[in-house]
Computed example of a mutant assay.
Amino acid sequence: MKKFEDKGELLSHFYDYRIVSCLKCSKPVDFLDLKIACIHCGFNKKFKPMDSWYSLTPITVEIEDFLTTPCCGHTFWAMNLEHLAFIERYVESDLRERMPNINRSLASRLPQWIKSKKNRNEILKGISRLRLKLVENNYKSKKHLTL
Rank of each mutant, 00 (worst) to 15 (best):
K45M: 13
Y90C: 04
L110D: 06
L95C: 04
N119H: 15
H74Y: 15
L81A: 03
D30I: 03
Q112C: 02
P58T: 12
R109M: 13
V29H: 07
R129M: 09
W77S: 15
C71R: 08
K115N: 08
N119W: 08
E62F: 15
D30N: 15
F31N: 07
G126S: 15
P100M: 08
R96L: 05
L81K: 06
I127D: 09
D51G: 02
W53T: 06
T75H: 07
L84H: 03
K125A: 11
S105I: 09
M99S: 11
N80Q: 07
R131Y: 04
I87H: 02
W53N: 07
S26I: 06
S105E: 01
S93G: 03
S26V: 09
T57W: 05
R89A: 01
C72L: 05
L67F: 02
V61N: 12
Y54L: 13
D94T: 05
P111Y: 08
H74E: 15
P70Y: 01
F43A: 11
L67Y: 04
K35Y: 00
R104E: 12
I114Q: 09
N44D: 14
V91Q: 12
R104M: 05
E62Q: 14
I63E: 04
D30H: 08
T75F: 00
T75L: 10
M99C: 07
P111Q: 12
P100F: 03
C71L: 06
P49Q: 15
K115D: 06
T69L: 02
N44A: 10
F66V: 08
E97K: 13
S52I: 10
I39E: 14
R120E: 08
K118V: 10
G42D: 06
S128C: 01
N103I: 02
C41I: 11
D65W: 01
V91I: 14
K117A: 06
R96C: 01
D51M: 08
R120M: 08
E122F: 11
E64P: 00
R104C: 02
L34N: 14
P49T: 12
K117M: 04
D65L: 15
I114C: 03
N101C: 05
M79S: 09
S108T: 05
Q112T: 14
H74C: 08
G42S: 09
E97F: 00
D94Y: 11
D33F: 00
E122T: 09
D33H: 03
E64Y: 11
L95G: 03
E62C: 14
Y54C: 03
E97S: 11
D30P: 04
N101V: 03
H74F: 15
N80A: 07
S52L: 06
P58E: 13
Q112N: 14
T68V: 13
L67A: 09
L110H: 12
E92Y: 02
K35A: 08
R98H: 09
P70S: 14
R109V: 00
E97P: 00
D65K: 11
E64C: 00
Y54S: 06
K125Q: 10
E88I: 01
N103D: 14
R89V: 01
L81Q: 08
A37S: 12
E88K: 10
L56P: 10
F43L: 13
F76N: 09
R98P: 02
